[in-house]
Design a protein around this nucleic acid. Structure first.
Lengths: 159, 159
DNA sequence: GACAAAACTTCAACAGTCAAAGCAAAATTA
DNA sequence: TAATTTTGCTTTGACTGTTGAAGTTTTGTC
């Protein structure tokens, strides 16, 4: 088998793992990956507007509304009208929401980090360099990449 | 920024690219990524059973039925009762289905392959090794078998 | 021949997603 | 200041992907 095949297969394995992980996270937290990601985005800033979430996730506002609806329904987040700009709505976490994040740290990421830490210094450096190279090869330059592995699922745009 | 963050960001970029690519493929072919994958799986073997697709995609049979329904509806695939085992149904491509595959070559993959080919021999070898390593690091399989000494909390990045 | 297993489909129920339309609050402009 | 446009968000309607459970048909087995 040639190297091109090997590399493509490895890449596919990486991607597939993250796909399958969506199911894992749901099992562990009772929250879907998309909802989990919203939770993470909120928690990064304390509170956040729907617009922000929409842009960070590259998803329409309607989608954000529906995601936040579910988080609110399940008592993980709250909506709160902004007093400065009444068009805006601040979305923030409840204690239950914070707990969900704390109690369910990203196992995929943990798995990776744990193994990464076990590597020799030079191995770590090499791995980082190669990952970055691959990312660049795929032309993923100008993306908002936060150091969080929790991925949304690969989903088609609806009709 | 430490190496852990760098590596997670790079990984995230890779994953994000493939996510966005799903939209690209839909745009280019009029077929959703899931349906496209089914098309690819069929074409690898000429014809295929629902069970096979289900296993290959790690998805329930009901899902496969619904995906194939759509491909048939759109004239890209056909169902054909097996004569050996009448429980089985062979799924195969129509000409339109084959065309969809041909007309929509994988730009993400091409992109990668082109750049990969341009690399030095030793660089290619190193890249493959690192990708495979990452794939293994993310795989859940060896979780039980891995000699994990660190029982302590692993910080969820970002939070 | 009765019964279990296998391969599919059907059905009901969700989640995620979008586009388009609607509403309310700012911002801009006349 | 009044009218108009823009901005932020929700609602609605529609569609895909997905599952699990129940049902159908065909095989296989005792």
């Amino acid at each position: 088998m040639d190297r091109i095949d090997s590399s493509l297969i490895a890449l596919r394995r990486i991607i597939r793992t993250t796909e399958l992980f969506g199911r894992e996270i749901r099992q562990a937290t009772g929250v879907t990956p998309a909802q989990f990601r919203v939770l993470q985005i909120i928690s990064e800033s304390g509170f956040v507007t729907a617009k922000t979430i929409s842009m960070r996730m590259q998803v329409s506002q309607g989608t954000v509304t529906s995601l936040v609806d579910k988080l609110v329904r399940d008592g993980l987040a709250l909506r709160q009208k902004s007093s400065e700009d009444r068009r805006q709505i601040h979305i923030l976490l409840t204690n239950a929401g914070r707990e969900t994040l704390v109690d369910a740290p990203d196992p995929l990421q943990q798995r990776f980090v744990r193994k990464f830490r076990a590597m020799e210094d030079w191995e770590q450096a090499m791995l980082v360099a190669n990952l970055e190279r691959v990312a660049t090869m795929l032309d993923a330059e100008d993306l908002d990449a936060s150091p969080v592995l929790a991925t949304g699922e690969i989903r088609p745009a609806g009709a």
